[in-house]
């Protein structure tokens, strides 16, 4: 059994209230049984990046899956993979997203929890015309004044210099490193790293007013 499947089963089956059990069906696919909720068939991937091709391969091999889980913390989802899965009524995200979606009975429509709020919020700003999701955490945003900016999301509680520099190194230049965690604040060095690179490091409170200055 693959390592990521072992971890998923171990953590699903230690549910203290006994609401949840899980077993391996075949290869990367597990079945989660929740009391009073529909069973969930989920593929647990150890990929570092989930592209449309990888997502498609999972779906072709396992057409009945409800959810595709990227188990690694560093797993990145390509925007096209997200669109593909959503069109096929398959939820996507990390293990935490899978676990809560299974408990809530909404695995088919669930999306990576940590970015979900920011993804909704940016589309609700009145000054935003269009949002293209390049990756799970990188958006190309066109404002109504036709200004286009690239925004990268940092979910950490207290972003460090390394968080900002790694975002830049992995995904390329961004205009804004958006710290989407509602708590905590970026370290002073994270702000300095942003200045060095030429991007703003902003909390959600500062996003809307900054966009209005562009």
């Amino acid at each position: 059994m693959k390592w990521q499947v072992k971890y998923a089963l171990e953590n699903l089956n230690k549910d203290v209230v006994g609401r949840c059990t899980a077993e391996c069906v075949q290869n990367d696919v597990i079945k989660i049984v929740i009391k009073e909720q529909p069973d969930v068939l989920a593929a647990i991937s150890d990929a570092y990046t989930i592209s449309k091709e990888i997502a498609n391969q999972y779906v072709q091999e396992n057409p009945n899956i409800d959810f595709l889980c990227g188990y690694r913390k560093e797993c990145v989802w390509d925007g096209e993979a997200i669109s593909y899965l959503q069109k096929n009524n398959i939820g996507w995200g990390n293990f935490g997203t899978l676990h809560s979606a299974a408990l809530n009975g909404n695995a088919n429509v669930a999306e990576q929890k940590i970015f979900a709020f920011a993804n909704r919020l940016i589309r609700q700003y009145g000054i935003v015309d269009k949002v293209d999701r390049e990756f799970d955490r990188v958006f190309q945003v066109t404002l109504k004044n036709r200004h286009t900016i690239r925004i990268g999301l940092i979910p950490d509680y207290e972003p460090t210099s390394d968080n900002v520099r790694s975002l830049w190194k992995t995904f390329g230049p961004v205009h804004i490193a958006w710290n989407i965690n509602p708590s905590g604040n970026p370290c002073a060095t994270a702000l300095e790293a942003g200045e060095d690179l030429g991007c703003k490091v902003l909390k959600t409170e500062g996003m809307k007013s900054y966009l209005q200055t562009l």
């Binding site: 390592w3 990521q4 690694r72 207290e158 460090t160 210099s161 390394d162 370290c187 002073a188 060095t189």
Partner: peptide
């Protein structure tokens, strides 16, 4: 490669600032 590591990298000043 076969462990679910979640690694946080901090500079010494960041560790002091956050008392992490």
């Amino acid at each position: 490669s076969e462990l679910p590591l979640d690694i946080l990298y901090m500079q010494p000043s960041e560790a002091i600032e956050t008392d992490f």
